[in-house]
Design a binder for these strands. Structure first.
Lengths: 342, 342
DNA sequence: TTGTAAGCGTTATCAC
DNA sequence: GTGATAACGCTTACAA
């Protein structure tokens, strides 16, 4: 059973007895066509099961593929999945499809994926940049008209559009919330690596919240972790200090899980906690988790909208869109601190 | 600033003073080439920033695109994201890229996506089938050699490879676990629609666990929900029955969240709970959540491995791979029932 | 209303 | 070793 070659436009044309161009016209509702040939063409298309080859079409028509190339650190992280969903929702009726790959936050893998996407001639390129990645090589593409958008974090050495969360003010709001409830020693659990944009921004928010409240910055209260287990360990360490914090601020959803789990294991319901990023079951924890929620779907939508405008010819200078975060008080952040309980 | 056309093979050839074919040969390490021209070609490629056009290449070389088309119900659901990650890991070094789209469990959207993927000439097609979708139209493609794999659920009217979790035996194990702890009235919360494969299979497991234990099936204990809120409502309803269940079995991760949240709100720590699918923070709940965990990454890997074998010429008959689930007892499933406490 | 010729950027074939 | 030419499947430009 030899695989029968897929039917082409020419096959349909031969079947009907017209030229390929006529078939093309009918299918794309391009120029005029007599109702009769139209009907015969459509019949033949159905009979043969013909499906136009999009690659061939794209290569002829514009040169670029009708896809959005998206590089994320991790496909399994629902944050990025939701971002992707927001992008898809926005570009779907422009006929664009999502081409996705994960970088594992490795600049080399990110670069390889980017190259593949460029080789595929994606219509839009979106990247959640890895720490240490250099994006200067995209400059040519960008000035040649390819919309490039950085997501969640700005890229390096390339002036282009970015869409990020209000990391700094969100963290500021979360920490200020803790201060308002009487806490004066607040532990900060940050992402790794320490150069990571989101970590730096959130830490900056933490610092200015302390400063604005006239509280000193105690470096002993700063900790780092890049996974749940490490976050749990860091939590233990912080709480074991001679002068321990009475509240904690966790820098992302992964860390939130680790910290919340460790507090539960330790039975420390007296320690206040606010986390950056919402997590499932946050309301069910005891106490329910107070969070600074991001809006990943909106992040994706904003990025897609920006890119589509570029595609439509917007040549204005690079913009950074900031998607607001939202403090959701649920209980863990309202546990009173010494300045209140006293 | 007119967008400078992207350099092509011909541009490189002209720059070097050789033919296009020679450049192609060098780049693909096809036929022989003198070290000298080789060097000059590579230099020109670098200088011009030339990147071969994969669309053009694919159209010429094999006709099919080096992509895996993947249709999932929801990009934001980490279950499917993790599945996608497993696929990517497996196909990456074959040079395949992931083309993804979400169906929202709508057969029409699933079909549209599938058509797009076919038009793009994907090398492999993977689908998490929506309820009510008909896949008979893929028969031609499949017999023409396109690997088609159904994920998580089998497709309809098409004999092809599928990769699913051990839904039935997993549910059986979870429910048996509850029975072993003394429960005789166990509520079942299922997915919607009721025709959904995973729901039917898990319900079958529930039923046979009861049957094997000599327990009667009480239809009043069966409930349906398709989101967290509905699951919470169904939980309330079940617990409000004249003869309420002493244990609950939740049919997926979404429902697990709803049920766990509702039990917490009601303060019902006496009701045992086992859920299908693991969820984040499961260990932190009070009591920690006992689950029947699936293995989404393995699901993706198995699907990809199967498809790659097909691509390599495996023409054996359609197979169904079952990825085992695993019961993880953490506390909520070990709450004793009347037959134990009495 | 329809057809012809040319071309998109690449590779296969077969010469030289 | 290298190059000319045709071809992949489609659309654009122009003619009939």
């Amino acid at each position: 059973m030899a695989a029968p070659r897929r039917p082409t436009l020419a096959d349909v044309a031969r079947e009907v007895g017209v030229s390929a161009k006529t078939v093309s016209r009918v299918l794309n509702e391009d120029g005029p066509s007599s109702p009769e040939t139209r009907e015969r063409v459509l019949a033949a298309v159905a009979r043969l099961g013909f499906q136009p080859n999009l690659m061939a079409r794209n290569i002829r028509v514009g040169g670029s593929d009708t896809t959005v190339g998206l590089v994320v650190p991790d496909l399994g992280n629902p944050f990025f999945g939701t971002v992707a969903g927001g992008i898809e929702d926005t570009v779907r009726d422009r006929g664009l499809t999502l081409l996705m790959g994960s970088s594992a936050d490795d600049p080399a893998r990110e670069h390889a994926l980017t190259r593949t996407f460029l080789a595929r001639r994606v219509s839009i390129l979106m990247i959640v940049p890895s720490v240490g990645a250099d994006h200067s090589s995209l400059r040519t593409q960008r000035s040649a008209g390819l919309p490039v958008v950085f997501l969640d974090r700005p890229g390096a050495r390339l002036a282009t559009d970015s869409v990020v969360s209000s990391n700094r003010s969100g963290a500021y709001e979360g920490v200020t919330h803790l201060i308002a409830h009487g806490h004066r020693r607040i532990g900060f659990l940050g992402d790794l690596p320490v150069k990571l944009y989101t970590r730096r921004e959130r830490l900056a928010g933490y610092r200015s919240a302390l400063a604005d409240a006239g509280l000193p910055l105690d470096r002993a209260l700063l900790a780092n972790a890049h996974d749940e287990a490490a976050a749990a360990g860091a939590t233990r360490r912080l709480l074991g200090l001679a002068a321990p914090p009475t509240a904690l601020f966790a820098g992302n959803n992964m860390l939130a899980l680790g910290v919340a789990a460790e507090l539960a294991r330790l039975g420390r319901k007296d320690v206040a906690l606010v986390t950056f990023d919402d997590v499932p079951l946050a309301e069910v924890l005891e106490p329910p988790l107070t969070v600074v929620a991001q809006n990943p779907a909106e992040l994706g939508k904003a990025a897609a909208a920006t890119a589509l405008r570029r595609l439509d010819g917007d040549r204005s200078r690079a913009r950074t869109v900031t998607v607001p975060t939202r403090l959701i008080p649920r209980g863990s952040g309202e546990i009173p601190g010494p300045a209140r309980t006293r």
